[in-house]
């Protein structure tokens, strides 16, 4: 290992420093400086609407920026190594082995004509040099680790036989097959049903506790990020408008945009009902105008 550069705590597995990303097609900067450090077992969340630059930031860290997008400033370090100017061969080593990712649409990342188990086994064979049998064994272990109920059965199934939630588990299994230190989950639960989303989030939290995996959780939903993250970055049109420990962002938001995100949940989300103490809840007569009462109550509470 090359010596760790000065100023970086030895434990940082992923460090972004004032990362800027430019779009060469329209000749403008899309991401205006993102910085965070991720140590093992920690979870950083990035919240923002589509087009806020959250996905580009992740892709930059994975070295898979779309065509015509370049990192134009700042630095990204993975386990202490600057990734600028990495050779493609080094990237291949790094991806999967050190940093890995899952995305929104799991089905499109798997080959529909190969059983999913074999695709996971392939990762261990290529990345860890396991032989066929050991790789199969490892794949079954992984499928069990992502809490799929019948690993043997799932191993031989194809993508079209699995539900969205199961596919996302399979993809997580493949992503952690080579024992990465960082896993980026970019809107990994967005397309899933709420109950399944909770299962996947629980799984990620579980993996982090058991293996010390560091996570970057990207979502447009502040509540999703709030549930699993230690630190939150709120991004808006390429700018980090708020950054801090989760509790601080939730309870002492400084930027109006963060406040807007919180307000949305409080006014229209479940929080509105859950916040009201159950004993105080007005008698619901079902006449249809209890909502008005709820609103008044909310105003009063504020």
């Amino acid at each position: 290992m090359t010596p760790v550069p000065e100023g970086v705590p030895e434990s940082a597995v992923l460090a972004l420093r004032d990362v800027r990303i430019r779009d060469e097609v329209n000749d403008r900067e899309i991401v205006h400086g993102v910085s965070f450090e991720l140590t093992p077992g920690r979870v950083v969340g990035i919240v923002g609407e589509s087009g806020s630059g959250k996905t580009l930031t992740c892709r930059a860290a994975l070295g898979i920026l779309p065509e015509h997008f370049v990192v134009s400033g700042g630095s990204i370090e993975i386990t202490g190594h600057d990734i600028a100017g990495l050779t493609p061969a080094r990237w291949v080593d790094l991806r999967g082995g050190t940093i890995s990712a899952v995305f929104q649409d799991p089905a499109s990342y798997l080959n529909p004509s190969i059983p999913v188990g074999r695709q996971i086994a392939e990762v261990s064979r290529v990345k860890k040099g396991l032989n066929r049998r050991a790789a199969r064994h490892r794949a079954l272990e992984l499928l069990a680790a992502v809490r799929l109920r019948d690993p043997e059965l799932v191993y031989g199934q194809f993508t079209f036989e699995l539900s969205g939630g199961m596919l996302q588990r399979v993809l997580i299994a493949a992503a952690i097959a080579a024992g990465p230190k960082v896993l980026i989950a970019d809107e990994a639960t967005t397309a899933l049903d709420v109950t399944v989303q909770a299962e996947i989030l629980d799984l990620l939290a579980d993996l982090r506790e058991r293996t010390g995996l560091a996570l970057v959780v990207v979502s447009h939903d502040l509540a999703v990020v709030a549930q699993v993250c230690d630190e939150v970055l709120v991004m808006r049109s390429g700018e980090v408008v708020e950054q801090g420990p989760t509790a601080q962002v939730l309870y002492q938001p400084r930027h109006e945009y963060t406040r807007l995100l919180i307000d949305e949940h409080e006014q229209y989300g479940l929080d509105r009902f859950l916040d009201a103490p159950a004993a105080d809840a007005p008698e619901v007569d079902g006449s249809g105008d209890h909502l008005g009462a709820g609103e008044k109550e909310l105003d009063r509470v504020r």
Binding site: V194, T195, Q197, A198, E199, L201, D202, A205, D206, D221, L222, A223, V224, A226, Q227, T246, L250, I262, H265, E266, G269, L270, D271, L274, D275
Partner: peptide
């Protein structure tokens, strides 16, 4: 109940796994 328990909320962040 599972639906309610699964819905992401802000303030009950320490959800009951």
């Amino acid at each position: 109940r599972l639906l309610v328990g699964s819905a992401p909320t802000l303030r009950s962040a320490a959800a009951d796994r």
